[in-house]
Design a protein around this nucleic acid. Structure first.
Length: 114
DNA sequence: GTAGTGACCACAC
DNA sequence: TGTGTGGCCACTA
Protein backbone atom coordinates (compact mmCIF):
# COMPACT_ATOMS: atom_id res chain seq x y z
CA UNK A 1 0.00 0.00 0.00
CA UNK A 2 1.08 3.53 -0.43
CA UNK A 3 0.48 4.52 3.19
CA UNK A 4 3.36 6.96 2.65
CA UNK A 5 3.65 7.55 6.37
CA UNK A 6 4.18 3.80 6.65
CA UNK A 7 4.57 3.85 10.38
CA UNK A 8 1.16 5.41 10.68
CA UNK A 9 2.46 7.46 13.53
CA UNK A 10 1.82 10.72 11.75
CA UNK A 11 1.93 12.59 8.47
CA UNK A 12 4.33 11.43 5.83
CA UNK A 13 7.84 12.77 5.49
CA UNK A 14 6.80 15.52 3.12
CA UNK A 15 4.04 16.79 5.37
CA UNK A 16 6.40 16.88 8.30
CA UNK A 17 8.98 18.72 6.25
CA UNK A 18 6.39 21.28 5.20
CA UNK A 19 5.31 21.67 8.80
CA UNK A 20 8.84 22.51 9.89
CA UNK A 21 9.37 24.94 7.04
CA UNK A 22 6.11 26.70 7.89
CA UNK A 23 7.60 27.46 11.29
CA UNK A 24 10.41 29.49 9.77
CA UNK A 25 9.56 33.13 10.48
CA UNK A 26 9.87 35.88 7.92
CA UNK A 27 13.38 37.22 7.60
CA UNK A 28 14.89 33.95 8.77
CA UNK A 29 16.34 31.03 6.88
CA UNK A 30 17.13 27.42 7.65
CA UNK A 31 19.26 24.82 5.92
CA UNK A 32 17.96 21.58 4.48
CA UNK A 33 19.98 19.69 7.03
CA UNK A 34 18.58 21.83 9.79
CA UNK A 35 15.04 21.08 8.75
CA UNK A 36 15.85 17.40 8.61
CA UNK A 37 17.40 17.60 12.05
CA UNK A 38 14.32 19.29 13.48
CA UNK A 39 12.32 16.42 12.10
CA UNK A 40 14.60 14.07 13.95
CA UNK A 41 16.04 12.80 10.68
CA UNK A 42 19.40 14.59 10.24
CA UNK A 43 20.41 12.24 7.45
CA UNK A 44 17.38 12.95 5.33
CA UNK A 45 18.43 16.38 4.19
CA UNK A 46 18.18 15.22 0.62
CA UNK A 47 14.61 14.18 1.20
CA UNK A 48 13.87 17.64 2.54
CA UNK A 49 15.15 19.08 -0.69
CA UNK A 50 12.96 16.73 -2.63
CA UNK A 51 10.03 17.63 -0.43
CA UNK A 52 10.57 21.30 -1.17
CA UNK A 53 10.60 20.43 -4.85
CA UNK A 54 7.20 18.85 -4.41
CA UNK A 55 5.97 21.54 -2.05
CA UNK A 56 2.91 23.62 -2.93
CA UNK A 57 5.03 26.74 -2.49
CA UNK A 58 4.09 29.98 -0.80
CA UNK A 59 0.52 29.59 -1.98
CA UNK A 60 0.47 26.39 0.00
CA UNK A 61 1.91 28.01 3.06
CA UNK A 62 5.33 26.51 2.58
CA UNK A 63 8.02 29.22 2.36
CA UNK A 64 10.49 26.88 0.74
CA UNK A 65 12.55 29.87 -0.36
CA UNK A 66 13.64 30.21 3.26
CA UNK A 67 15.40 26.88 3.04
CA UNK A 68 18.96 27.07 1.75
CA UNK A 69 22.10 24.98 1.53
CA UNK A 70 24.31 24.41 4.57
CA UNK A 71 26.72 27.09 3.39
CA UNK A 72 24.06 29.65 2.66
CA UNK A 73 23.91 29.04 -1.06
CA UNK A 74 20.54 29.15 -2.75
CA UNK A 75 18.98 26.51 -4.95
CA UNK A 76 20.43 25.99 -8.43
CA UNK A 77 17.97 28.39 -9.93
CA UNK A 78 15.40 26.36 -11.78
CA UNK A 79 13.29 26.48 -8.66
CA UNK A 80 10.95 29.33 -7.80
CA UNK A 81 10.34 30.05 -11.43
CA UNK A 82 13.68 31.56 -12.25
CA UNK A 83 17.21 32.40 -11.19
CA UNK A 84 17.36 35.03 -8.50
CA UNK A 85 13.70 34.67 -7.65
CA UNK A 86 14.45 32.97 -4.35
CA UNK A 87 17.00 35.61 -3.52
CA UNK A 88 14.58 38.37 -4.39
CA UNK A 89 11.96 36.93 -2.06
CA UNK A 90 14.46 36.69 0.78
CA UNK A 91 15.68 40.24 0.24
CA UNK A 92 12.08 41.39 0.34
CA UNK A 93 11.78 39.79 3.76
CA UNK A 94 14.87 41.55 5.01
CA UNK A 95 17.42 38.80 4.60
CA UNK A 96 20.88 40.04 3.70
CA UNK A 97 23.48 38.35 1.54
CA UNK A 98 27.24 38.15 1.67
CA UNK A 99 29.52 39.33 -1.09
CA UNK A 100 29.57 35.77 -2.30
CA UNK A 101 25.88 35.92 -2.96
CA UNK A 102 25.13 33.59 -0.10
CA UNK A 103 22.66 34.11 2.71
CA UNK A 104 24.22 35.60 5.81
CA UNK A 105 23.46 32.62 8.00
CA UNK A 106 25.25 34.20 10.93
CA UNK A 107 22.54 36.83 11.06
CA UNK A 108 19.47 35.12 9.69
CA UNK A 109 19.85 31.49 10.61
CA UNK A 110 16.64 30.34 12.23
CA UNK A 111 16.81 28.19 15.30
CA UNK A 112 13.81 26.20 16.43
CA UNK A 113 12.37 27.33 19.71
CA UNK A 114 13.79 30.80 19.40
C1' DG B 1 7.77 -4.99 -7.64
C1' DT B 2 11.94 -2.78 -9.35
C1' DA B 3 14.84 0.95 -10.69
C1' DG B 4 15.96 5.64 -11.02
C1' DT B 5 15.88 10.17 -9.36
C1' DG B 6 16.63 14.09 -6.22
C1' DA B 7 16.48 21.87 -4.46
C1' DC B 8 21.94 17.53 0.52
C1' DC B 9 25.59 16.75 3.86
C1' DA B 10 29.92 15.13 5.60
C1' DC B 11 34.24 13.12 5.04
C1' DA B 12 38.65 12.25 2.59
C1' DC B 13 42.36 13.35 -0.36
C1' DT C 1 42.25 25.35 1.69
C1' DG C 2 39.66 23.59 -1.91
C1' DT C 3 37.65 20.01 -4.66
C1' DG C 4 35.57 15.60 -5.36
C1' DT C 5 33.11 11.57 -4.11
C1' DG C 6 30.01 8.59 -1.48
C1' DG C 7 26.20 7.67 1.36
C1' DC C 8 21.62 8.17 2.94
C1' DC C 9 16.40 7.64 2.32
C1' DA C 10 11.84 8.48 0.38
C1' DC C 11 8.97 9.33 -3.73
C1' DT C 12 7.67 8.68 -8.70
C1' DA C 13 7.34 6.27 -13.06
Amino acid sequence: MKDQSATGEGPNFFERAFDVVRQIPQGRVATYGQVATLMGEPRKARLVGFAMHQSPGLSGGVPCHRVVYADGSLTPGFAFGGPGEQRRLLVTEGVTFTKDGKVDLEKHRWEAGV
